[in-house]
Write a protein that binds this DNA or RNA. Sequence first.
DNA 1: AAGGGTTTCAACCGCCTCTCA
DNA 2: GTGAGAGGCGGTTGAAACCCT
Length: 276
Amino acid sequence: MGRSPCCAKGVNRGAWSLQEDQILINFIKTHGQGRWRSVAQKAGLKRCGKSCRLRWLNYLRPDIKRGEISADEEDLIIRLHSLLGNRWALIAKRLPGRTDNEIKNYWNTNLAKKSHDKKAKLPIKLPQTKPEGEKSIEKPEVKAQTYNSVKCSKAPLIPPQEIQLTSALQNEILVPLDDDSFNFLMEIDFGDLVSVPVVDFPDHARCGQMNVRKSDTVNHVKGDDDNCILSLQSEDGFVHENEMKGVQIQPSLDLELKRVASFLELEEDEWNGDGH
DNA sequence: AAGGGTTTCAACCGCCTCTCA
DNA sequence: GTGAGAGGCGGTTGAAACCCT
């Protein structure tokens, strides 16, 4: 059964007039915001509630910052987008005075192309599928190396714990975070979830992003060319492994932090449920 | 100056989640 | 537990502004 349309017939559409703006501002000054449908009615605006809400939040609010996006803001948008994807509302919360709509528009008109161009220029050599008749390409040797694992504890995050990656862990991919990335994550309030960049494989640079509970520890990721198995440990010690297909492949940690968002959320019932 | 193409961004659309009766 | 209303969100649209020839 379909829902009744939000906007009844006979309401104004399109650009707001100065007079309409003033009516809305005056009404909200007196009565406060919220109950948008009744705002439209009580203020005498021939607009639907959603339209009033949008106009207020994206344009009329007194704390809206006008003017060009600064270089710092742009940098933050890029970093947040690489971490969160198109979650504009979440990104906007980290940029005081900027609206999700503004950031979305700015991304689509200015940054999407930049981002695309940047990726296109990056040399990526990956043995995804081996050409017929050609011998298989060897996996890179993983040298003993220090990585930071991420304890996704309740905010603030616990500082990264040092883990020694040995040659015995060949084919395993830990979750590396450089200081910048870790500090960046520390500043973000993700609610119940935190997005964690996954993976860095010398030469292969296989990367992705996933959401885990703050109370979970990411143990490691076992990977091959097309699949990864994520190993997570919950507070009560339960170890859960998830298969992740089609991992985003990008070359550097700072650029790559990418999607697979909601991946674990799909599994949440399963590992919240009985016996776990 | 005019006309056509491109870009920008405010506003809309439809879906989803949350809340409450 | 269920359904309806309200708010929130990301994707899309289209009018206005801008640019180029």
